[in-house]
Each structure stands twice: as structure tokens, then as C-alpha cells.
Design a protein around this nucleic acid. Structure first.
Lengths: 116, 116
DNA sequence: GTAACGTACAACCTCGTGGTTGTACGTGAG
DNA sequence: CTCACGTACAACCACGAGGTTGTACGTTAC
């Protein structure tokens, strides 16, 4: 397996919100309970809980029960998987540039073996 | 300027759709008109047009009029900017690991100058 | 045991998104 | 000039996202 299947739709959608990106940053720095996270933002506990749920479905965070608390921690592997997807765009783009160079080279050489 | 201000919300939201990611791939490989793109997908022209508009607002693509056509091309710099944002998550995560190592080191040394 | 805490979830509202069809307008070809 | 083409945009619909409040349930503290 490629470490794990990446649900690109869910991951990018989850990252498309400033609050959620902030939550990811916090729990990447160190685990935190849902209520501890909720205290950081000016919105209801339920709202934060939903954000965490979105991040969990995207596998950007994991939850682990400890006593009556639920500890949330960031999952760096999913972040990396998203980064790799972006790198694929880079490769596509680089490939296009390479093809352009080939064309230019052929023209400069007077198309010795180019298409008729 | 940091090359240009990245609107993370818009960029990630734009990337959170398979059709739009496919469009980005195509126009990163080589420019294409909106109708040419529309022919690639089983949805109305207007729908594809909207997707392109979303990508344009996120600056993932640029449009340039040529005659009666509108040429769409991918903007690799925005893709890179998004990648750099993901790398910031990596750094946060790495920083946490580093701090963990410091704590372990202090414990191993018997906390010669640690907190009372 | 009881009370407070941390969590989960349902119901509800509003707004943006992704799709449709229809219409209008500028440009290029014949 | 005329007509087809490429594009733009408005109106509409269905659905999910993001927020709220209220309620319920398990767990810890006292």
C-alpha cells in the first residue's frame, strides 16, 4: 500500500478552513482534548467538535480515549500524502517544460529527424 | 512580497474536487480553451466554466483571451505556495519531536539544571 | 451516591456549492 | 453581412457545510 489511501477530496476540503488548519497545527505540536481545543476558539463546543470530526474523517487527526477525555493528535502522514499530491502537479508541469525544450531543440537543429 | 498572498481557504477548497484537480493537471500540461476542457467531462459547459472560475479565483489557473477563445493555463506558483503551507505543518511537527527529545535528554541526565 | 465534567449527537437555520437550462453578446469564418 | 462559435452570466434547484441550542450518557471527583 502507498502507506494508506488518501481521500484527496476530504483532505483538501478539511484544510480549506482556517479554524481547522489551526487545530491541526495545535495537535501537531502536541495532543489536546476536544474541550481544551474548544477553549481556544470563539465558537461553541459543538462547532469545534464538528471541525475535529471533519479532520478525523480526512485522517488529518486521530482521537484516542483516555479516561473521560478524548485526546486529539495530528497525523503527519496524511499531511505528507497531500504534499505528495501537490508534487505530482509539479512533475506534470516540469514534464511540459521538458517537452517544450525538446521542441525548441528540434527546431534549433533544423529537425534532422523530425516529423515530415 | 512572499511572491504573492496565498488565499489558503480558496486554494484548498478549489483543490477539494476531482474535476478541478483534473483540470489543473490538464492546463499545467498545456494551455487549453474553456470549450476544449468542457469536452473532456460529462457535464454542461456552464458547469466546467464555473469550475474554471473557482480555480481562477484561487489563482490556480489564469485566463488569457486570444481571439474569441479564452486560453486557460495552470499557475504552478500557487501550487507551490500551497505546498509550502503544508511544509509549515511538517516544521511544527518536527519542532514537537525535537522538544520531546530535549525532555528525554534532560531526564536521562538526571535534570542537572532542570526545574525544581 | 451525587454532582460536575467531557463528550456525543440530534434538530434546526443559513449560506455556499455544484449542477442544470436559457439567454445574451462579441468575434471570426464564409 | 450573416451565422456559427466561444464565452459569460442569470435563474433555479438540491444538497452539504458551518454554525447554533438542547439533550443524553459515561466517567471522574468528592
Amino acid at each position: 500500500m502507498v502507506v494508506r489511501e488518501l481521500d484527496a477530496d476530504r483532505v483538501f476540503a478539511a484544510l480549506a478552513d482556517a479554524t481547522r488548519r489551526d487545530i491541526v497545527t495545535r495537535v501537531l505540536r502536541g495532543e489536546a482534548s476536544v474541550t481544551a481545543l474548544a477553549r481556544c476558539y470563539e465558537m461553541s463546543f459543538a462547532a469545534v467538535q464538528k471541525h475535529v470530526a471533519v479532520l478525523e474523517r480526512a485522517r488529518l487527526v486521530t482521537k484516542e480515549r483516555r479516561g473521560r477525555e478524548q485526546l486529539v493528535r495530528g497525523d503527519i502522514t496524511t499531511v505528507r500524502a497531500a504534499g505528495h499530491l501537490l508534487e505530482q502537479f509539479e512533475r506534470v508541469w516540469a514534464g511540459r517544460v521538458e517537452r517544450m525544450h525538446e521542441l525548441l531543440a528540434e527546431e534549433a537543429e533544423g529537425n534532422p529527424e523530425g516529423p515530415s
